[in-house]
């Protein structure tokens, strides 16, 4: 069953169209990246999925149903801007918000203990939220998002403001969620994180879908006919290579239309060259993002 299905959703505010005929679906057991520049309509889309705001037209279903009491408890949401009750203690915060998702106190306390242990925050469970650093607060809010064992987890910019250690921790936990068969929607503008984690993506710009589909497939669609080569010795002239671009630590070889990377590799090996790295040059998601967003700006 599809975790989320968004069909032809449109949402306008007073002076602009925030989301314009957007359609996509998210399946269980995948991390789905919702990417786009600031103001592209990502958060508005998420809020419509959560029924916080209603679309002008189009439909959103969660696990085949319209958002309602039945679906609320299957869903965990980490909003872009974080906030918890400052005066409440960490454990009480997690238990209270999990209880709103229908979890009983004992199960919530047990699960909160597990998650606090895993994130190295167990010693802080009696501390008040206001005593936590910003990064720690974010981890607590992530724990709040997943304590009730949701089947769909929506994370809006989860990595912003996190240090590298906590970023890694959060990534690991996202991958765990996917491996447990849950659907994870990751809205972010840090392309490297999305590239690392996501199976499929939807790129939005000005409220419209720009790219949608399997990440590997999208990247292969954007690949150029070139390879990246790190080697020892002299390269000299190589048949089939039209241009050499020197980068720090490697050289990019642009192939003519008739030569395949496989043929080039064979030619280089036959010369007895020591090759440290031979890689198909596929553009990073960041490059694709800049290209697509830049195209739209023009």
């Amino acid at each position: 069953m599809l975790a989320v299905e968004v069909s032809h959703v449109v949402k306008s505010f007073a002076d602009k169209v925030a989301v314009d005929d957007l359609s996509f679906s998210v399946t269980q057991g995948e991390i789905f990246g919702l990417i786009g520049p600031n103001g592209a309509g990502k958060t508005t889309t998420i809020r419509m999925m959560m029924d916080i705001i209603r679309p002008d037209s189009g439909e959103v279903t969660i696990f085949g149903e319209k958002f309602g009491e039945a679906t609320q408890n299957k869903l965990g949401y980490l909003p872009e801007e974080r906030g918890l009750y400052k005066k409440l203690r960490v454990l009480e915060t997690i238990i209270y918000l999990a209880s709103l998702k229908g979890m009983d106190r004992n199960s919530a306390e047990e699960k909160a203990g597990e998650l606090l242990e895993r994130t190295g925050m167990l010693s802080n469970k009696r501390k008040k939220i206001e005593e936590m650093s910003r990064g720690m607060g974010q981890i607590i809010q992530f724990i709040v998002t997943i304590t009730h064992d949701p089947q769909l987890v929506i994370l809006d910019e989860p990595f912003s403001g996190l240090d590298p250690v906590n970023t890694e921790l959060l990534k690991e936990m996202c991958l765990d969620l996917r491996n447990q068969g849950k659907a994870v929607i990751l809205s972010a503008h840090q392309m490297n994180q999305v590239e690392e984690l996501c199976d499929r993506i939807l790129m939005v710009n000005d409220g419209r879908a720009v790219l949608y589909g399997d990440l590997a497939e999208i990247k292969s669609r954007y690949k150029s006919n070139s390879v990246l080569l790190d080697f020892e010795g002299e390269l000299g002239d190589v048949p089939g290579v039209t241009e050499k671009r020197q980068h720090r630590g490697y050289v990019e070889l642009l192939l003519d239309g008739k030569t395949t990377p496989q043929q080039l590799l064979e030619r280089l090996v036959s010369r007895g060259m020591v090759i440290n790295r031979f890689e198909m040059a596929t553009p990073s998601l960041n490059e694709i993002f800049l290209k697509e967003v830049g195209k739209n700006k023009k």
Binding site: R47, M50, D51, I52, E69, Q72, N73, L75, G76, Y77, P79, E80, E81, R82, G83, L84, Y85, K86, L97, L100, K101, Q141, V144
Partner: peptide, 16 residues
């Protein structure tokens, strides 16, 4: 305060 901290969004993802 719930609006300022956006906690309201978390609450409304749990209750109507």
């Amino acid at each position: 305060e719930e609006k300022e901290s956006r906690l309201i969004e978390v609450l409304l993802s749990s209750v109507s």
